[in-house]
């Protein structure tokens, strides 16, 4: 075990490990974790621990990275409940603009935006209350636009209710969209008085 190349191979280990430590994006970090696994399997094999190398390659690189991708994918996401017709209609430039801006803000924090369509406003509200989604985006009803609230509907086409306090704070400080002029309905207090709101929903029914 006095060959010189062994030292060069072992030096790869701290190199890839520091690459992993200084990576901020979780998905990129997982790929680099795979690289670290491959390099460390090489190091273990060169140093004579064949069983450790095999375990590192099979469990450390293959299984744990795959499981972590699934975990990160399902946890680092903001689920936004939307009205079904607002996702189907391609004519809605305003909604697309808002969606892109929201995606840019969330992308800075490595969050994904996932749109969950719901058939009507009642189902949307119910989904927010039962914590199926983190936020709902409700368009003002079309018939309102025709009858009386034309000005309001034109000025503020979308109403967003966010359940998560931290997310609400981030969006409130960063989501500047004067063209769409969004309103925020913070329902984080409503969660605490969950019973009361559920009664309210039942009264509406």
């Amino acid at each position: 075990m006095t060959e010189n190349y062994v030292y060069v191979i072992i030096a790869l280990l701290p190199l890839t490990a520091s690459m992993l430590v200084f990576q901020t994006n979780p998905y990129h970090a997982l790929v680099i974790r795979g690289i670290l696994g491959a390099v460390s399997a090489l190091v273990y094999a060169v140093l004579g621990a064949a069983d450790v190398a095999l375990t590192e390659a099979l469990v450390g690189t293959l299984l744990s990275v795959a499981l972590y991708v699934v975990a990160v994918r399902s946890s680092l996401v903001m689920r936004l409940g939307v009205h079904q017709d607002s996702t189907a209609g391609a004519e809605d430039v305003c909604f697309k603009e808002f969606k892109d801006e929201l995606r840019a803000i969330l992308g800075k924090r490595h969050l994904r935006l996932e749109l969950v369509p719901y058939p009507d406003a009642q189902a949307l509200h119910q989904a927010l209350m039962t914590k199926e989604v983190h936020a709902t985006c409700m368009g003002r009803p079309k018939h309102d636009k025709h009858s009386s609230g034309v000005g309001v509907a034109e000025k503020q086409p979308y109403q967003i209710a966010i359940r998560v306090k931290h997310l609400h704070d981030i969006l409130q400080s960063e989501l500047f969209s004067p063209a769409t002029s969004l309103t925020y309905a913070d329902v984080s207090e409503a969660i605490k008085t969950d019973l009361g709101t559920q009664d309210l929903g039942r009264a509406h029914l």
Binding site: L30, V31, G34, A38, A41, A45, A50, A53, L54, A57, L58, T61, L62, V65, A66, V69
Partner: peptide, 17 residues
Amino acid sequence: VVGVIILSVGNAGLMLL
């Protein structure tokens, strides 16, 4: 043998990822 196993199994894990 370890090298052969890592070489053959690594591709499957890569495809999964």
